[in-house]
Write a protein that binds this DNA or RNA. Structure first.
Lengths: 345, 345
DNA sequence: TTGTAGGCGTTATCAC
DNA sequence: GTGATAACGCCTACAA
């Protein structure tokens, strides 16, 4: 039992294949070159056979797949899922599907995805920052992007030092705001939990952190920074280390809300009250942040619609490969809630 | 500037198209019917031109797309991303890609996805429970699945009352355990926050809840059940309602951890201490559950690997459409942590 | 060992 | 209005 093709429909309706094709997608065409009678006959045959056009053949013929790839760098972080959700919805609205790729630790996988792009399984690719800059074959990938004019959009937390369409949303200003906020509350020793899935990520938080502290004449020694992995438990362990250190900070900045949850837990385990004994700040304003106890002070990018901008950018690029590369910048803002308070005396 | 095809490679290497094809994917074939010299020449031409086989054409020729669809019913719930993560990873391991579909409120969208399946954009479809049973066109969808032998696997919280491959993991036993646990702690009034994205979901928690209470001779009036939507805020509002009711429950069961976070927040806002004043239970054991304050008592399905089983099931079905339908069942178990304690006196 | 021919299902271009 | 015919790019017998 094979599935029906256009030929079968044509045979059943007693017309030629071309007629079938015209009936099915001749709507857009100005002149309806088909008699109502045959039209209905064809439609009936389509229905009787349960005929469905083969998308693969359409893709081969028309040249595009109406599918874009999306690489999510860390599936465990709600922040990225909010991205994925927005992108998928907007893509759908524009008649596109989304092929989802997760990056575990498998860097080689990136190359396969680029091959999918070159092989026209997907029309374009949206990727989180830290992939192109970190991949061992980054230069080759970039060269290919330019050589074949592959439609690629990067979501990044810093301005790219290469030619590419980029949606940059960084926390530089927000980090400065955070530090000022903490300083104004009397904090002197401010720690950082720095846990990333990919090396170059979140420098938009680390660098201003160092700068601002130095600028304010506060200690910024390395012992205040706990480097770790991207999971909650990593954040938990890192915070324990910070809290138990001889010169415990009175405030801890986690580079994202997920890690901040681990920090909250660590504080609780050490008998510290937040924010009375320890202030905690996160980033991303994930949907849970406002429901934690205490509600998390954090920074939000939500002023922008990642999905809409990313999809618009990639579609523009697909339509016109020769467009000049663009960078769209969107800042974030600080949201003060309950996890930060005056430094303990 | 068009991208190179097999013909271009053949021309450059001075051989025929078939030779190129053989060189490229003749590895598996036992007999290497190509001379080393031409092989290298072809390979060089491939490299020079940056030739990449067109996957669309391959798909059309070979009949499959090496892609499976995945419908996620609620992107905002961590539990479902854990599914998605597992499925994507396992799919990749098996050489398949995952096309991601989100279900907002757009029921009509399901039909489009089924058309994608029929149109061979995807080889198979994995869907969360509550889609097939609730869609207005559910019967039609099921009929199509059977008629065309579409490979579909459903992830469900109850045994299907229709013929389909199903990965069932329910909380019936776990819910009974939860109730017994609470009763043994002296709780008499046990409330429930029931918030779902799709009507028939989570009956595996609602029904045993009612039964067990009745069986234990405890009140099970409707005023103890707060129906709401699936977001944290919904859970928060529902819990407020429960807490402020004249006969406030001493324990609240949320049908998942996400809602439980809202309940925790509501308790906190009402000045209730958990678990001293109010015990709270969730379901799913999302990765955050063990890091909340207090750590959440919940039930876990993690004993099974959803990804592996789902992918195996769908691949089996794709390979052999005539297979008898299977249901794989996996129970869950209760995890007692800190959010449940003795009932207040 | 290599080349030739046919077909996958669709759409576009021409004649009729 | 409708019906052949030729691509799209690839794969696979089969023939040379």
């Amino acid at each position: 039992m094979k599935r029906p093709t256009q030929v079968d429909v044509a045979k059943l309706a007693g017309v030629s294949r071309a007629t079938v094709s015209l009936v099915i997608n001749g709507q857009a065409d100005g002149k309806v070159a088909i008699s109502e009678e045959t039209r209905l006959r064809v439609l009936k045959a389509v229905d009787d056979l349960g005929y469905e056009p083969d998308i693969r053949a359409q893709a081969l013929r028309s040249g595009d797949t109406k599918t874009i790839g999306l690489i999510i760098i860390d599936m465990a972080n709600p922040h990225y899922w909010e991205h994925a959700d927005g992108i998928e919805q907007e893509a759908r609205a524009q008649g596109f599907n989304v092929l989802l790729f997760t990056l575990s630790l498998d860097r080689e996988y990136v190359n396969r995805i680029f091959r999918d792009l070159a092989g026209r399984r997907i029309d374009g690719l949206i990727l989180s920052g830290g992939i192109l800059s970190e991949s061992r074959d980054a230069k080759k990938a970039l060269a290919n992007i330019h050589k074949y004019r592959l439609p690629v959009v990067e979501l990044s937390d810093r301005f790219p030092d290469y030619e590419l369409d980029c949606l940059v949303s960084d926390y530089r200003l927000a980090t400065a705001e955070v530090i000022n906020h903490l300083i104004s509350l009397g904090h002197q020793r401010i720690g950082m939990v720095y846990g990333v899935a990919s090396p170059a990520l979140a420098l938009d938080r680390l660098e201003p952190y160092r700068e601002c502290l130095r600028h304010a004449g506060l200690p910024a020694d390395e012992s205040l920074i706990a480097y770790c992995g991207p999971t909650i438990d990593d954040g938990y362990q890192a915070a324990l280390q910070l809290i138990k250190s001889p010169s415990r900070p009175t405030a801890i900045i986690a580079i994202n809300d997920l890690l901040a949850i681990g920090v909250l837990r660590a504080a609780s385990d050490c008998g510290l009250h937040v924010p009375a004994d320890l202030s905690i700040v996160g980033f991303d304003d994930i949907c849970l942040a406002n429901f934690l106890t205490p509600r998390l002070t954090t920074a939000s990018k939500k002023i922008i619609s990642v999905g809409r901008d990313a999809i618009r950018m990639i579609l523009d690029r697909i339509q016109n490969p020769d467009l000049a590369y663009r960078v769209i910048y969107a800042p974030a803002r600080l949201i003060i809630r309950e996890s930060t308070g005056p430094a303990p005396v």
